[in-house]
């Protein structure tokens, strides 16, 4: 259904063009332009600042001026204590492993929720949905003490385990709504046509489920990559993730907020995500809204 809605045209009247002048259409374009500017301008300002010399931090010139790459050097400058390369690696490891675990475990749960009839289904869904809305601080307090006692502060598992608490429910929830939309009848048709069970799974179900699983993986990865609260409390200098690193950045000028370097770091962290999101735009929107609206 999610795919169906994406291709449908809806709600608004398709305007009958070639009329004198369509004021309604002009109003639509003006409002669309406002949305575009509101969404993109702050992000654009981040990129402009990232490429600006430190001395011109507060220069209000709208376009790229005093372009320099020094901010990107500052970002990776270990002599200032910015272990940004390490932080990127940490984020990749933490978000990657979290996503992997959530997918491998969640795919079975999603299949059961989407395809099987059983008692307490409502309850299980409620629990999973509730888990995804669970406040992180309620985990951080006991885990901080536990991980301190067993010496886990500064390990990857100390970040991965609490991350699972919100990435796994998200994964199960999104996959469930995707699986529900899949044409499972094809599996049976394939078997009637002489496929073995294994062939039917490999040739029919897997290709159908792969895009859904991939989209879910992107959503799960983004949510783990963007996590801040848990990482800020349960990591140390060695396992700091990028979000924590960006929040506590050191610049070349002591006592001065290194805005340009922070914007450079922000740009580095954001560009891959934005590209990913723009490339898989349709699927991601489907995944985001899946389940919530039916």
């Amino acid at each position: 259904m999610t795919t169906a809605t994406a291709t449908r045209t809806h709600v608004a009247e398709v305007p009958t063009r070639r009329k004198a002048f369509d004021w309604g259409q002009v109003r639509t374009y003006i409002q669309a332009a406002i949305i575009l500017v509101w969404c993109l301008l702050p992000a654009y300002w981040m990129i402009v600042t990232a490429f600006r010399e430190v001395a011109y931090t507060y220069d209000p010139t709208f376009w790229f001026t005093h372009v320099s790459l020094e901010n990107f050097r500052t970002v990776f400058d270990e002599s200032l204590g910015n272990r940004f390369g390490q932080a990127l690696l940490n984020s990749l490891i933490v978000a990657g492993i979290t996503t992997l675990i959530a997918l491998v475990v969640g795919v079975f749960a999603a299949y059961a929720l989407a395809r099987l009839n059983f008692r307490f289904k409502f309850l299980v869904l409620g629990f999973i949905l509730g888990a995804s809305m669970f406040p992180g601080v309620a985990l951080v307090t006991p885990l901080f003490q536990l991980f301190t006692n067993i010496g886990w502060i500064g390990t990857y598992q100390a970040l991965i385990i609490p991350n699972i608490s919100f990435v796994l429910p998200l994964t199960v929830y999104t996959l469930t709504s995707f699986f529900r939309e899949m044409p499972w009848e094809l599996e049976e048709s394939a078997r009637i046509d002489g496929c073995t069970q294994g062939q039917a799974f490999r040739k029919i179900i897997l290709p159908l489920a792969a895009p859904a699983t991939f989209t879910t993986a992107i959503l799960a990865f983004i949510s783990a990559w963007n996590e801040f609260l848990i990482a800020s409390q349960l990591s140390n200098d060695q396992t700091k993730t990028v979000t924590v690193a960006i929040a506590s950045f050191a610049g070349s000028e002591p006592m001065q907020e290194p805005y340009t370097a922070v914007m450079a770091a922000g740009t580095l962290v954001t560009i891959p995500l934005v590209l990913l999101v723009l490339i898989f735009q349709r699927k991601i929107v489907a995944g985001l809204t899946a389940g919530a609206v039916k």
């Binding site: 045209t9 809806h10 709600v11 608004a12 398709v14 305007p15 259409q25 639509t28 374009y29 669309a32 949305i35 575009l36 969404c39 993109l40 702050p42 992000a43 300002w45 981040m46 983004i222 990559w225 963007n226 801040f228 990028v242 979000t243 924590v244 960006i246 929040a247 922070v262 914007m263 770091a265 922000g266 962290v269 954001t270 995500l273 934005v274 990913l276 999101v277 723009l278 735009q281 991601i284 929107v285």
Partner: peptide
Amino acid sequence: MARSFRGRSAIRAAVLVPWAIPTAVTAKL
């Protein structure tokens, strides 16, 4: 975004940009 006009998909892509930026980066920005 529900209306049909040329460039609609550009708007739909653009709104995903603030969503994709990590909150920590948004805060610093």
